[in-house]
Amino acid sequence: MFQRRAIERHPLDADGIKLYTIAATARPVALSAYLPQLARMKQARPIDWRATPAFAICHDGASARYLVLGWWGNDNEMFVAVAVEQERGWIEDAARYSFCLWDMEVMWHERNAFVERMYGAEPSLAAYRASHFVQA
Rank of each mutant, 00 (worst) to 15 (best):
G61I: 00
V115T: 11
R88V: 09
R40C: 06
Y66L: 08
Q3V: 15
W49N: 09
R50N: 12
A121E: 07
D75C: 05
C58Y: 01
A127I: 03
W108R: 15
S131C: 12
F79R: 05
M118Y: 09
A26H: 07
M104A: 14
K18D: 05
I7Q: 08
D48S: 04
V115F: 07
D60G: 01
Q37C: 14
H10C: 13
M1T: 14
H59P: 05
D60H: 08
N76F: 11
A127D: 15
G16N: 00
G70H: 09
A14D: 14
Y66I: 02
E122S: 14
D103P: 14
I47P: 02
S124V: 12
Q135Y: 00
P53Q: 08
P123R: 14
R111G: 10
W72S: 12
Y20N: 06
V29N: 04
I7C: 10
A126C: 03
Y20V: 10
A51K: 15
A81G: 13
E105H: 13
A6P: 02
A39N: 12
L35V: 02
D13S: 13
K42A: 09
V134I: 13
L69E: 09
L69T: 06
A30L: 11
L69N: 06
Q37G: 03
A113C: 05
Q3P: 01
A51M: 13
S32W: 00
I17N: 13
G16Q: 04
L35G: 08
H109D: 07
R4A: 01
L12G: 03
N74G: 11
Y128S: 08
A94D: 07
W90E: 12
R129V: 08
A14T: 09
C58R: 06
V80D: 10
G70T: 07
A6N: 14
H109W: 09
Q37F: 05
A126D: 13
V106M: 07
A54Q: 07
N76L: 08
A83R: 00
W49C: 13
K42E: 02
M118N: 03
G73R: 10
S124N: 09
P28N: 13
K18G: 10
V68N: 14
V106H: 09
I57R: 13
R117K: 14
A51E: 08
V80E: 14
P36F: 02
I17E: 05
Y119D: 06
A113W: 01
L31Y: 02
Q37P: 05
A39M: 02
Q37Y: 01
P11V: 07
Q43L: 12
Q37W: 06
L35Q: 12
A56N: 01
L101S: 11
R117D: 07
L35C: 01
Q43G: 11
D93P: 06
S98H: 04
G73E: 12
Y119V: 03
I7W: 04
